[in-house]
Design a protein around this nucleic acid. Sequence first.
RNA 1: GGGGGUGUGGCAGAGUGGUCUAAUGCACCAGACUGUAAAUCUGGCGGGCUUGCCCUUCGGUGGUUCAAAUCCAUCCGCCCCCA
Length: 380
Amino acid sequence: MKCGSYQLIKKSSECKGRLGKVYTTRGVVETPIFMPVGTQGTVKGVPTEWLQFSGAQIILGNSYHLYLRPGTEIIKKAGGIQKFTSWNRPMLTDSGGFQIFSLSDIRKISEEGAEFSSHIDGSKHFFSPEKSMQVQKDIGADIIMCFDECAPYPSDYAYAKNSMELSLRWAKRCKTEFYKDNAHETQALFGIIQGSVYNDLRAKSTQEMLNIDFVGYAIGGLSVGEPKAYMHTVLENTLSLIPENKARYLMGVGMPEDLWEGVERGVDMFDCVIPTRNGRNGQVFTSLGKINIRNAEYREDFSPLDPECKCPTCTKYTKAYLNHLVRAQETLYLTLLSLHNIHFMVNLMTKIRKSLENDMFLKAKKEFFEKYYSKNKRRG
RNA sequence: GGGGGUGUGGCAGAGUGGUCUAAUGCACCAGACUGUAAAUCUGGCGGGCUUGCCCUUCGGUGGUUCAAAUCCAUCCGCCCCCA
């Protein structure tokens, strides 16, 4: 099977949710899937073997960050990103497009590309679609992404239109550059649909991306601050236009509730920094809702974070101990909480896949939310 | 016994007549985080409510003053030096 190709296994009878497989050079990924983010060649705080134990099938890397440090030469010498990091399962790299959004203060955008002033030392670096492709080829992930502009929210219609059209022109250049050599035999290039919250722009972007023709399609520019309802509408309208034999990847999403909502609307792939970032900030996802382990109420709580969780954190440590580690700023908590949150997300996806398999998605979703929000209801 | 210093909110520590419920840091109490410039950031942190104001606070007491954490007297506590 060609790298990046999608095989539809089963469609839900209740919703747009679907069970499938994405084939890559380094293995098959069962979808829907949650991909932990490992920007700089590491899912922050979590060792590879624990990541694998958690059931993670594929993780992300970031072109911009890896290009700046350690640099593509070193990654090439190491034999590619998987060898360099010891993560031997599939990997996906983002193009640097998100940094146009997140580093908006230190970059300049033009037709040709984007110039960044390195957040590390201020030095200037130019990222074009061609450059991003070269960097991502050198890094060597299984799936790579088009260089796009992730537009901010809110963007007015004119800005969103120009930005979406720029991303289209860049996508064409990405594809041309990508197919210049043999990289496409081992790597897959995904296109990214833009258009902010404007449905006609999203439709136009989708149609044009399909015309360019990619192995898979991502929906970008969401979860940048827009109301949830907008995200859902964009998903519904956009996904209905994409042929069902293509993987659909919702970039940068999300929270547990977003995974359910996304899958229900036909999303196959998700990635998000939230499990690791929140872990580092003391916030923990559990089957009974979101908690902040730093809070006083856990000082003498000798139960595990999540009674249903089988991760190393939950099988060995209590809330009281984790609360202590956070308060004492003992770095072990970074690892333990990140690991738990990753485990939670990955296993939530396993649950979701199972529910699709049994065609009981809606029931499983309802049960999940009843529990997940039960704590707040009791309080209310 | 003599000399000098010092006492400020949970802790450390600014402030030395009005702009002081009193800087700042820590601690504490919460909240946020969605293709990672984040082990970060934001808010709160004497009491009351009608949320603007009122009451109570800078070791104790008494005083000076229109006005005191700030000046004076005295008491108490602590620290240092000399004997």
